[in-house]
Computed example of a mutant assay.
Amino acid sequence: MNLKKYVELSSDYKSNSQKTRVFTEPFVAENFYCPCCGASVIGRKNNDKVRDFDCSKCNENYELKSKQGKSLGKIVPDGAYNSMLERIENNSNPNFYFLNYDKENFDVINFCAVPNYFFTPNIIIPRKKGIPNRPNYIMCNIDISGIPNSGKIFYIKDKKIIDKSKVLEDWNKTSFLKESHSVNSKGWILDTLKCIEKLEKTDFTLNDMYQFEKELKLKHSQNNNIQAKIRQQLQILRDKNYLSFTNRGNYKLK
């Protein structure tokens, strides 16, 4: 998919960030859909600082972050640090769209959605400096490398368009995380998902997961029984139909 026909919409703008916003927002509104229900998305015309799109059917909303380059990268600039943390704590942060495109021919390389429940405070990084004339107003970056792969729902990956049914399936596979209102409990589930992904296999054992004990202890220093917590998280993932127990101490992703 290509952005070129939308670029002329930004001709009256000087800032590169403004230009990118002006031509990527209509592109998304015209070509994509809500990954939760499949309905069209509607661009907001009032320059809402928190979200750029509303679903035309369900209650989901989305903020778009776009950049030039061959990959999405690890770090994406965002807005006010304290405001973002507050929204995460209150479960009021938006879902995100992330898009990157080739700066020479404007081909879209990757476009994905990330559900808001995949955001935790540890992936929100304060920038070292504030903004001019407001030194105490700290902006932030989003460390998207800290988001499990299961939380990155691709519409386009490496220029390949993903079937709509697959997009909807991938989004709803982890929708049970909406139930995790506690940042700590959600953090444990997300860290467990990251560990499972690092194994890079569909079938794995409890001993495979125990190898992450030290890593998880560093992230959850107040917990003194990491192995028991790992077993608990695997039980939750089984109950939510994310994986299955094949036999004692053995698991399989669905």
Rank of each mutant, 00 (worst) to 15 (best):
Q68H: 04
E86L: 08
L72R: 04
E25Q: 15
F119D: 08
E86S: 14
L64V: 06
S92H: 00
F32Q: 00
F53A: 05
S83D: 14
G38C: 03
G69T: 00
V76G: 02
P126Y: 03
F106M: 10
E60N: 12
K67D: 04
D78W: 15
F119A: 01
K67A: 12
Y81C: 04
E25I: 12
P94A: 13
C37W: 02
S15E: 13
N141L: 06
R44V: 15
P26Q: 04
P35E: 05
P132V: 01
D48C: 08
N100M: 10
C112Y: 13
Y117D: 06
I131W: 07
D48M: 03
V114W: 01
R127Y: 00
R134H: 12
I131F: 06
N95L: 07
N133Y: 12
I109R: 03
V41I: 15
N46K: 14
N122I: 12
N31P: 03
K67H: 05
Y137V: 00
D52Q: 02
D12M: 10
R127I: 00
A39T: 00
I124C: 02
E86V: 05
S92R: 01
E60K: 07
N47S: 13
K14E: 15
I138W: 03
V28H: 08
K67G: 09
C34P: 05
Q18T: 15
N90S: 12
A80D: 15
